[in-house]
Write a protein that binds this DNA or RNA. Structure first.
Lengths: 234, 234
DNA sequence: CGTGAAGTTGATGCTTCTCAAGCGAAGTGG
DNA sequence: CCACTTCGCTTGAGAAGCATCAACTTCACG
């Protein structure tokens, strides 16, 4: 396993919050106190209900954040990637309210909570950014709640595809969704079962809205996909 | 209509955030810049998609906060009351992402956003409290999302009753849920229809879990109600 | 006392979940 | 390198859960 533990000052992940919102001396502080770790696909960074340790920053990679529900059911609440903060849902909590699992090999930095608190206290811009970030997260979360309860499965599957694309391949020109997720993962975003996802993807393919090339999902007609997903909103 | 526009310094709503987290001089600042308004049941404080104006503080009363969905469907995302902050979901947004409707006559203070921002900048304790509040809101919202998608209607109706009780009558001794909401309101919390609420309430009554005394819901066996609502959680 | 709104209840049918069988790709071990 | 196992995906059939519709009752309020 390669060592990805670079100094923050040499880090190429330019949208890392530390680099963007902290002063030079505090970037050094983070560099001296963070711990980097490389994770392989399917490994867990965070286990729900275990002791909260600190805040994570994704140096590079892709991570799904989910909440456990009935039996084995899970609700994916976020798709995180390079530059994203991770574990902020556990801020000020003793135990993690969510789990985080690697979906593409990732390198992730941990800053223990006492250091993060010190950082917040001394970097007002970071605090302000975090505040606004929570506002956004709350907005998306409540939109998700409403949609999970009111949209049909077909609409939710369409919406899930757009969410994945938006998270991992936002480029308008590029048609792929940017990551290989299992049917179960898509179901855990859409709040349904893997069988329903399969059936609806087959339908979308039949209608030439998407294409399925060896496991990869290609969005052929994002306008119609949008129409299906937004069928109801407003 | 009585005039409830008291000076903040004379305000008896002791859990108002201004009184709790701002310094004396800044309480005066709020007192001089806030606008109080009395609202009657069914009036709207906030209309979704209209211009965001500022942050509200509930002097006294009860308010439901909801997001519009398909057709006339609504998802209630919060039950607010005396001392609560209102409209923080619109922080840093141009338009309101939610509506807020009075469910019991209320007096509510508005602090325009430019004043609120100034307040935040100068009262670090308020900023910190707001940050932690958003973390909590995010937690509850994602729990709601998961539950709406995974629980059965029966479980969600039980959960809705507990949420109402918890919001408006948290006392363990008192059995009432603390407020008169319509079946449609309960449905909008539970993510179902008013008919299903009616049927499930009848079932609960049959099972001696609740009692229905002229529109008022009395919780007779909160343990069993909890068991039903939590059937799945963990 | 009359009108409209809110609540109840039952019948019906659609949507979605569950279960099961079959398939193919990928990984494992001899 | 090939059989063997395992895992994920697909598809169909059946069942369950839930929304919708409609008829009726009760309540609120002028």
């Amino acid at each position: 396993m390669k060592n990805f533990s670079v100094k923050c000052t040499d880090c190429e992940t330019s949208d890392c919050w530390i680099l963007k919102f902290c002063s030079k001396e505090w970037i050094d502080f983070v560099a001296n106190n963070k711990v980097s770790h490389f994770y392989k696909k399917k490994q867990h960074v965070i286990y729900e209900k275990t002791l909260m340790e600190g805040i994570y920053f994704i140096h590079f990679g892709k991570v799904k954040v989910y909440k456990s529900g009935i039996g084995k059911k899970q609700q994916i609440v976020r798709l995180s990637k390079t530059g994203d903060i991770l574990g902020h849902r556990g801020f000020n909590r003793e135990y993690w309210p969510i789990s985080a699992e690697i979906i593409e090999d990732s390198n992730i930095c941990l800053l223990r909570i006492e250091h993060f608190n010190l950082l917040l206290k001394n970097n007002i811009e970071l605090t302000n950014h975090l505040l606004l970030f929570y506002v956004d997260e709350l907005f998306y979360s409540e939109e998700m709640a409403r949609d999970l309860s009111q949209l049909s499965v077909r609409e939710r599957v369409a919406d899930a595809l757009l969410k994945i694309k938006n998270a991992y391949c936002p480029s308008k020109e590029d048609k792929c969704v940017g990551v290989l997720l299992s049917r179960q993962d898509i179901a855990d975003i859409a709040g349904t079962t893997k069988e329903q996802v399969s059936k609806n993807l087959a339908e979308f393919k039949e209608e030439k809205i998407i294409n399925l090339n060896n496991k990869e999902i290609i969005i052929e007609d994002s306008d119609r996909l949008n129409t299906i997903a937004n069928h109801s909103r407003f």
